[in-house]
């Protein structure tokens, strides 16, 4: 097994300054938001790597950089040994890019309402001038819809069916890596189960690699082979699901796991977590989690912890043991 995707030092800074004129008139400086800060991870071929985090953790930004919707400010993304940032040969980059597809969160916004399903599904192929005869029909059946649905419009489908159409579109160009950005968080539980099962089946059938981006810990535990936990744009812990859920090392992971609602926790009375996610424009010094951390010491306020191996996990914490 080899790493299919290697991400090194990935960083993305957004300029969130007010317009030039406002800055001059109000005497403000430029403002920058570091959405992703120095993130490293690898995805093995034919596995599911999950990025978990709350809002503002930068998980979607990482996904967008991977598929090329955003350019990183710093760092590298390597797919199958091709460095997408530094590679000079445009053809090699295009070839690698066509191996990456994406499934979006909102099945209502991710399908063009004026297009027929057939045209939506084959667009990735048609745009490259490929043959599309019967392709939409074949893909629709693969994702559990009818071939006859190809002539319909998106509004004729329910949320779950639309998400199947999105999956069919992402499969059209025969990709090897699919970035799934919250693929089920807009769906109901019973529909979520259908979509997750479909994703598992397709993974086995086509030998796909997934990068799963979600905030839902139950989905992560069910789907992932390896999990990276993000907090304020930084990777704080990485482990396989068993290790992560049974022996979380980072205080943030521990907090997240205890806060998640559980089906078997009737009338549970646990002290809820303290504080809220800080403002990413002005992040805390040292370890970003220290203002909320129950065990933080002076070193946490001063130095940003590096990722280190700890038992079966990797964790970015000075004190975890």
């Amino acid at each position: 097994m080899s790493a299919y995707v290697t991400v090194r030092g990935l960083t993305r800074v957004f300029d969130v300054s007010k317009p030039w004129l406002n800055r001059v008139l109000e005497g403000r400086k430029k403002a920058f938001l570091t959405a992703v800060s120095d993130v490293d991870f690898e995805i093995e071929e034919r596995t599911t790597y999950a990025l978990v985090g709350e809002s503002g953790s930068g998980k979607s930004t990482i996904g967008k950089m991977l598929v090329g919707l955003l350019n990183p400010s710093e760092g590298n993304v390597e797919v199958e040994g091709v460095n997408l940032m530094t590679e000079a040969d445009a053809d090699r980059i295009a070839a690698s890019r066509s191996n990456i597809q994406m499934i979006f969160q909102d099945p209502y916004a991710s399908l063009n309402p004026r297009w027929r399903v057939r045209d939506i599904i084959v667009e990735p192929v048609a745009a490259q001038g490929g043959k599309t005869e019967g392709l939409a029909e074949k893909l629709l059946e693969q994702v559990g819809l009818h071939a006859s649905d190809a002539g319909k419009f998106p509004h004729e489908f329910s949320g779950g069916q639309r998400q199947r159409i999105c999956i069919a579109r992402s499969l059209a160009s025969e990709p090897r890596l699919i970035v799934c950005d919250e693929p089920t968080s807009a769906l109901d539980v019973s529909v979520q189960a259908q979509v997750l099962n479909l994703m598992s089946d397709l993974k086995d059938e086509f030998g796909l690699t997934y990068l799963l981006i979600t905030h839902d810990l139950t989905v992560v535990r069910h789907m992932a082979d390896r999990i990276g936990v993000l907090y304020l744009g930084r990777l704080v812990e990485e482990a396989d699901p068993e290790t992560l859920f049974n022996t979380p090392k980072h205080p943030y992971t521990q907090m997240l796991l205890s806060a998640a609602p559980r089906m078997d926790a009737f009338g549970r009375e646990v002290p809820p977590p303290q504080g809220e996610i800080p403002d990413p424009i002005d992040p805390p010094s040292g370890c970003a989690f220290h203002p909320r951390c129950p065990i933080a010491t002076d070193v946490c306020r001063k130095d940003r912890p590096a990722m280190r191996a700890l038992a079966a996990s990797k964790v970015a914490c000075h004190l975890a043991e």
């Binding site: 019973s190 189960a193 099962n197 989905v219």
Partner: peptide, 23 residues
């Protein structure tokens, strides 16, 4: 029952989720 069974649970491990057919 179908709703409960289709929610991914820790105890179920990674076996297939129960599906309620249709919508």
């Amino acid at each position: 029952h179908g709703l409960m069974a289709s929610t991914p649970l820790a105890s179920q491990g990674r076996k297939r989720l129960h599906q309620i057919p249709g919508a």
